[in-house]
Amino acid sequence: MALLAGSLVVAAGGVLAAAPHASAASCPDVEVVFARGTAETAPPVGLTGLSFAQALRAQLPGKSVAVYGVDYPASNNFNNRVAFVRNVVAGITDAQDHIKATAARCPNTGIVLGGYSQGGAVAAYAANSGIAVPARYAEYASQAPKAMPAEVEPRVKAVVLFAPPSDRWIRDVGAPEMNVGPRYKPKTVTYCIPGDVVCDGAPVGQPNGLHVLYAVNGMNVQAAQYAAARL
């Protein structure tokens, strides 16, 4: 997965419209807001997201756990820089909008933000305290997704990132740093299988077989235990 081939904000204009908000249905005890990985099509949160949500339900008997799949293409059109950047920014915006809507509508619902691979980057940027746009893209800084309001932060109980692109990967493609903001960092956990070239610090390249094992290698259960302990 060649991710974020350029600044996330180079072509962000026009994609920051509000995403569909939560319905007026009864509020769950917990809502998982999860961004699927590149080219995952089924189910809406991808296999890693589905396995994580199932494991979380098992950790929280008697509590209702709803799942929201971040609405974005999760595309692999890496050769079209403009389209790809717009897709990722759309995911960040949709995740933030849904979290803000849920926090406003359901004051007692605990929110878990998560993502896998490209979706891990979406989730990390969504929890950023402000995206630091590289100087060469300064003219686009005003179009970058903003940090979520401070009052929303206590409602996000955990941030779970499966195989997000490594710092080296992000630097190599010239994207802004993917640092989770200081309000979210103490409740964020990252899972990377040793040798997974997307997240372990290897140069940018094609993913290997290890990159697709997060739904079955036990890290989904570890992540569920981490989140459950904070809900």
Results as ranks from 00 to 15, higher is better:
Ala74Ile: 02
Asn76Ala: 07
Asn76Glu: 13
Asn76Thr: 00
Asn76Pro: 00
Phe78Val: 08
Asn79Arg: 05
Asn79Thr: 12
Asn79Ile: 03
Asn80Val: 13
Asn80Tyr: 12
Val82Gly: 13
Val82Ser: 15
Val82Tyr: 12
Ala83Val: 12
Ala83Gly: 13
Phe84Pro: 03
Val85Glu: 15
Val85Cys: 10
Val85Trp: 05
Arg86Glu: 11
Asn87Gln: 15
Val88Leu: 14
Val88His: 11
Val88Glu: 14
Ala90Met: 14
Gly91Val: 11
Gly91Gln: 09
Gly91His: 08
Ile92Lys: 05
Ile92Ala: 13
Ile92Gln: 09
Thr93Trp: 07
Asp94Asn: 15
Asp94His: 11
Asp94Gly: 11
Ala95Gln: 14
His98Cys: 03
His98Asp: 06
His98Glu: 02
Ile99Leu: 05
Lys100Cys: 07
Thr102Cys: 00
Thr102Trp: 00
Ala103His: 10
Ala103Trp: 05
Arg105Gly: 05
Cys106Lys: 02
Cys106Met: 03
Thr109Val: 03
Gly110Asn: 08
Gly110Lys: 01
Val112Arg: 00
Gly114Ala: 05
Gly114His: 01
Gly115Ala: 10
Tyr116Glu: 00
Tyr116Asp: 03
Ser117Ile: 04
Ser117Asn: 09
Gln118His: 02
Gly120Ala: 08
Gly120Tyr: 07
Gly120Thr: 03
Ala121Gly: 13
Ala121Asn: 09
Ala121Tyr: 07
Ala121Pro: 04
Ala121Val: 09
Ala121Leu: 06
Ala123His: 01
Ala123Cys: 03
Ala124Ser: 12
Ala124Leu: 04
Tyr125Ser: 09
Tyr125Pro: 11
Ala126Ser: 13
Ala126Met: 05
Ala126His: 04
Ala126Gln: 06
Ala127Gly: 04
Asn128Val: 00
Asn128Gly: 12
Ser129Arg: 06
Ser129Ala: 14
Gly130Arg: 06
Gly130Lys: 04
Gly130Pro: 01
Gly130Asn: 09
Gly130Ile: 01
Ile131Asp: 10
Ile131His: 08
Ala135Asn: 03
Ala135Ser: 10
Arg136Trp: 07
Tyr137Pro: 00
Glu139Asp: 12
Tyr140His: 12
Tyr140Cys: 09
Tyr140Pro: 01
Tyr140Ala: 15
Ala141Asp: 10
Ala141Cys: 04
Ser142Glu: 12
Gln143Tyr: 14
Ala144Met: 08
Ala144His: 09
Lys146Phe: 07
Ala147Asn: 10
Ala147Ile: 04
Met148Gln: 13
Ala150Gln: 13
Glu151Arg: 09
Val152His: 04
Pro154Ala: 09
Arg155Ala: 14
Arg155Ile: 02
Val156Leu: 00
Val156Arg: 00
Lys157Ala: 07
